[in-house]
Simulated assay, not measured.
Amino acid sequence: MRIVVQRCKRAKVTVAGETVGSIGPGLMLLVGVTHEDTEKDAAYLAEKIAGLRIFEDGDGKMNLSVLDVEGAILSVSQFTLYGDSRKGKRPSFVAAARPETAAPLYDRFNELLRQKGLVVETGRFGADMDVELTNWGPVTLILEHPAPADGR
């Protein structure tokens, strides 16, 4: 799984003009699933994200997690995170898992975050979504599990 984590002041996702997910301060997640991903990968990343210390404490140091600051999560499925544009001008998405594989694992990942006590809003899997966010900092990280073969 590959996840872009963005600390945000607010974020929302709309489908056909309807808001389907919206949060105040917290984390905006773009979540990509590849063929080999398992529930173990989802559990690892849910644990990592819930405890990721990227919010500032009273001394201005990134020492607090989304749980510590009682923030929320907006999680949006994003198969294009597995786009490969090394050849040609049109990306290949063969590394992205098919919807019948990706959707249940994406749903399970979100449920694992909820089990940690987080409020999790989502987009609509497979829909054409408009995503808005106010990135706070900005702070943006890319998490991946298992780690890429090239050791990034």
Results as ranks from 00 to 15, higher is better:
Lys12Phe: 14
Thr14Ser: 15
Thr14Gln: 11
Val15Ser: 04
Ala16Asn: 13
Ala16Ser: 14
Gly17Glu: 06
Glu18Ser: 11
Thr19Ala: 09
Val20Ala: 03
Val20Pro: 06
Ser22Met: 01
Ser22Ile: 07
Ser22Asp: 12
Ile23Asn: 03
Ile23Leu: 11
Gly24Trp: 03
Pro25Leu: 05
Pro25Trp: 02
Pro25Glu: 15
Gly26Leu: 07
Gly26Arg: 00
Gly26Glu: 05
Leu27Pro: 02
Met28Pro: 03
Met28Lys: 13
Met28Tyr: 15
Leu29Ala: 00
Gly32Ala: 11
Val33Cys: 12
Val33Met: 11
Thr34His: 15
His35Glu: 14
Glu36Tyr: 13
Thr38Gln: 13
Thr38Pro: 08
Lys40Ser: 14
Lys40Met: 11
Asp41Val: 03
Ala42Lys: 08
Tyr44Lys: 15
Leu45Tyr: 09
Leu45Glu: 06
Ala46Lys: 07
Ala46Trp: 01
Ala46Leu: 08
Lys48Val: 03
Lys48Ala: 10
Ile49Arg: 01
Ala50Pro: 03
Gly51Thr: 10
Gly51Met: 09
Leu52Tyr: 12
Arg53Asp: 11
Arg53Lys: 15
Arg53Glu: 13
Ile54Thr: 10
Phe55Cys: 02
Glu56Asp: 06
Asp57Cys: 02
Asp57Glu: 04
Asp57Met: 12
Gly58Val: 06
Gly58Ile: 03
Gly58Met: 02
Gly58Phe: 01
Asp59Ala: 13
Gly60Lys: 05
Lys61Asn: 14
Lys61Trp: 12
Lys61Ser: 12
Met62His: 13
Met62Lys: 12
Asn63Cys: 01
Asn63Lys: 03
Leu64Ala: 12
Ser65Phe: 10
Ser65Met: 11
Ser65Glu: 06
Val66Gln: 01
Val66Ala: 02
Leu67Phe: 10
Asp68Asn: 13
Asp68Gln: 09
Val69Gln: 08
Glu70Cys: 10
Gly71Tyr: 08
Ala72Pro: 10
Ile73Lys: 00
Leu74Ile: 04
Leu74Arg: 05
Val76Leu: 06
Val76Ala: 00
Val76Ile: 13
